[in-house]
Amino acid sequence: MSTPAELRASLADRLTENGALTEREWQSAARAVPRELFVGTHFAPVTGSVPTSYRPVREGEPGWLEGIYDDRTLVTQLDGRIGPEDTAGEAVTGIPSSSSTLPSVVLRMWQQLDAEAGHRVLEIGTGTGYSTALGAHRLGDANLTSVEYDPTVGAAAAAAIRTAGFSPRLIVGDGLRGDPDGGRYDRLIATCSVRYIPLPWLHQVKPGGRILVTLSGWSSANALALLDVTGPGEATGRFLTDQTSFMIARPHDRPPRPTLDLLPGDESPTFIDPATLDSWTGGWVAQLAAPAAVRTGVGARQILWDLSTGSQARTAPGPGGGWTVTQRGPVRLWDRVERAVRCWQAAGEPHQDGFGITVSAAAQRVWLGTEDGPGWDLPV
């Protein structure tokens, strides 16, 4: 049986070989930080269960330690309140609300942030504390502040971080407000996703500093953005190629919704294949066009439901070929989506790295190609 140190070294070697881990200092962090301290117990999805159910994985089970050093996300909380220790060992259903993200993603993001020794860094979303410990190893305890929204999650992370031998500044509070004491940071990294860039971040990162964050929304499409802060409350940046997703910050999550009743509406043809929305970037473009909508369905049968107005749109195969769309309500959801998708298609369907973002106190705009190109406002 391999020791934890051997498993850490093996993981670091694999991540180096596949290109996820390229910098010596972060390789050292990956070899030093014991992930098992942060995810000693966790949930494993039950294969084939619908809806997905999760089985608690206990410390010491056969394959437990080896599983921790797989490059995979480990769920540690469901529904904002259920941990593995809260079950009697049976599988349970729920929505993941806290996790330890794939080590490859965590380490790649730390490298993309371009944080160096001496930089002061604000981390939004302590989570299990594994990412925080990696950052503390590389940057030093005094240079890292991490904010966690959930008090239970934050307390567990603090204990694990101390056990691992690190002592960064840890805060329990609303990370969307940044550091409650203010501060001037060189870098900000978010391990949760947001619908838009919170303005406090733009005032707490110095001009010339950087923010790395995943933008998401109520249709669960994601895009990773690296922004340069250009002045107080202002930033500009580009989206990266990585297909990165995080749980959305709880204050930005969609509100509770009643059961959807599909109601009659106006039917017309649509000139885009609805299955385009199933692609990573296609779904994200649709979310930009209809940010208050939830998207369900697959292939030719897509459903959009605007949570602010109740407007609906649903697509279906046309009787003679092609597709039809039925729309209802004050917002013509599919018209907005179709215009955005056709604009993206006319540009050659670039990946997300073909898009950029400009943020100011007045608006937050995602644009295609260049800053003066077509764009969409985020729902600030």
Rank of each mutant, 00 (worst) to 15 (best):
S2H: 02
A5G: 06
R8F: 00
A12R: 06
R14Y: 02
L21Y: 10
T22L: 08
T22S: 13
Q27C: 10
Q27Y: 02
S28I: 02
A32I: 01
R35P: 10
L37M: 15
F38Q: 03
V39G: 05
T41P: 07
H42K: 08
A44Y: 12
V50I: 13
Y54P: 08
P56I: 04
P56V: 09
R58F: 06
R58H: 13
E59P: 04
G67Q: 14
L74K: 10
G80A: 06
G83F: 15
D86Y: 08
G89C: 05
A91Y: 09
T93A: 15
S98R: 09
S100R: 03
V106Y: 05
Q111A: 05
D114C: 10
H119E: 03
H119T: 00
T126C: 05
T128W: 02
L139G: 05
G140H: 03
D150T: 09
T152L: 07
V153P: 05
A155V: 04
F166L: 05
P168E: 03
L170A: 07
I171E: 11
I171S: 01
V172S: 15
G173C: 11
D174T: 06
R184L: 03
R184C: 12
D186A: 07
D186P: 02
R187Y: 01
L188H: 00
I189S: 08
V194R: 00
R195S: 15
Y196T: 14
P200A: 05
Q204P: 09
K206L: 15
G209N: 08
G209F: 01
S216E: 01
G217Q: 06
W218P: 11
S219K: 02
A221S: 15
L227Y: 04
G233A: 05
T236W: 00
G237V: 10
F239Q: 02
F239K: 07
L240R: 14
F246S: 11
M247N: 11
M247A: 13
M247P: 04
M247R: 04
I248W: 07
H252A: 04
R257C: 11
D261P: 01
D266Q: 08
A275K: 11
G282S: 06
G283K: 00
A286Y: 07
A289G: 12
A290N: 10
A292R: 10
A300C: 01
R301F: 08
L307D: 11
S308G: 08
T315S: 14
W323Y: 14
T324F: 05
R328S: 00
R328P: 02
W344P: 09
E349Y: 07
P350E: 04
D353E: 15
G354T: 06
G356Y: 05
G356E: 02
G356V: 10
A362G: 14
V366T: 15
V366E: 12
W367C: 09
G369C: 11
T370R: 13
G375L: 02
D377F: 07
